[in-house]
Amino acid sequence: MTATWAVLAKDLRLLWRQRTGWVSAGAFAAMTVITFSFAFDLATADVRPLLPGVLWVTFLFAGVIASSHSFSEEQEQGTFDALLLAPAPRTALYAGKALANLVGLLSIELFVLLLGSVLFNVPLLVPRLILVTFVGTVGYVSVATLLSTLGAVRSRAVLLPVLTLPLLVPLLIAAVRASGEALSGNPDGAPWLLLLGVFSFWSAVGAALLFPLVVEQ
């Protein structure tokens, strides 16, 4: 537990000191939303059917960019080996890393939701949508953090989304549908939030169990 907090505190401090990485991920997210509004002409009367898709594609792309930092920096600086030498369970290291990514990605998503509320004149910061975003992001971050341990492989920047996104198809479908429900208020006919919750829970458990095997030297 203390190890988790130590890693989390270290990563959050780094996140703050090296703001550029996360700020650029946030800028990328803003740019994605704005590009979508030109591409789909989101200035129409009712954007609600399109918005969930726009939001989640933005979240996924921004998340891939943001989470790839968390291990590439460590590996470049050689600090990851030092971290592994620490007499702490590897699962605790993973939890710290994943929590730091969660904090970073949630801040970006909050920013996007704020931006979307202003741009599309739809109140996006409603409790139900925030709940869906939170649950989905937990699942997303747990998978992305595990897969971002991909070492110094050639073309890792392309490889990471190619590996991550197909795994996350259930999460994307469930999150988009649940967000649509939250925005329109009409139930969709399938328990999407439940599916999202189960997926996120099992991803987090599975990733925490498998992480020690990936980083073993």
Partner: peptide, 9 residues
């Protein structure tokens, strides 16, 4: 090992 973990997932 990374590939194996991915395949299991």
């Amino acid at each position: 090992r990374y590939g194996a973990v991915f395949a299991i997932f």
